[in-house]
Simulated scan of single mutants.
Amino acid sequence: MIGLMIAIIIFNLLCFKTNNRLTPNQIISIWLFTIAFQTSFDIIVEFKYYSYWYFEKESVDWAGLLPHLLLVPPVNIIFLNWFPFEAKLVKKILYLVFFIIAILMYELLTLLPEPWGYFNYGWWSIWHSVVVNPILLLLLLGFYKWICKLEKAS
């Protein structure tokens, strides 16, 4: 739990102190999208197939809500805030690759024993995350672009 609390504080500070792109409306939209999408994904992957879990297997606990509500949303906002939208495709791909590597390194840290770690693998492995994370980040980018388009239309 200690590692999770430290991460929540660091990522939220980084998110809000470095944001110079996203509007309050975009932040709220991304935050809620992240919670809804991650919760939907985890209901299937975590609770139906026991591929991974937060803290305790086969139980929905309050501590397991913290990563959904307070950790992943600011990470997604950091990703979008620093994304090189105006750069060439190569730079965008490199940014995506480096961000995915950073996420994977953090995921490995979360596997440490408690109190530092809080994440556990069932049949899931880091290689599943290597495949899934780019898809999730590209979906996030698509959602953000859609939100921007909606804001311009109104």
Rank of each mutant, 00 (worst) to 15 (best):
M5K: 01
I8S: 04
I9F: 14
L13M: 14
L14F: 15
C15L: 06
K17L: 14
K17H: 11
K17T: 14
T18W: 15
T18C: 12
N19L: 07
N20Y: 12
L22T: 06
T23D: 08
N25K: 14
N25M: 14
I27T: 09
I30D: 01
L32T: 14
L32K: 07
L32R: 08
T34S: 09
I35M: 06
T39G: 08
D42E: 13
I44P: 05
V45G: 02
F47D: 04
F47G: 02
F47A: 03
K48G: 01
Y50N: 06
S51H: 10
S51Q: 12
Y54P: 05
Y54A: 03
Y54E: 03
F55N: 02
F55Y: 14
F55W: 12
K57M: 10
K57L: 11
S59G: 09
V60T: 10
W62L: 13
G64Q: 05
L65F: 15
H68I: 11
L69T: 07
L69S: 06
P73R: 02
P74C: 04
N76L: 08
N76R: 06
I77V: 11
F79E: 01
L80E: 02
F83N: 04
F83E: 04
P84C: 06
E86M: 04
E86Q: 09
A87D: 15
K92V: 15
I93A: 10
L96N: 05
F98T: 07
F99M: 03
F99C: 01
A102H: 11
I103Q: 02
Y106K: 03
E107V: 05
L109E: 09
T110H: 07
L111N: 06
P113A: 07
P115T: 02
F119P: 01
N120H: 10
Y121V: 06
G122T: 00
W123Q: 03
W123L: 04
W124E: 01
S125I: 11
S129Q: 07
V132R: 07
L136E: 08
L136F: 12
L138A: 11
L140Q: 01
L141V: 10
G142I: 11
F143S: 02
F143I: 08
F143E: 05
K145P: 09
I147N: 03
C148T: 10
C148G: 07
K149L: 13
L150M: 10
L150A: 08
E151P: 00
A153W: 15
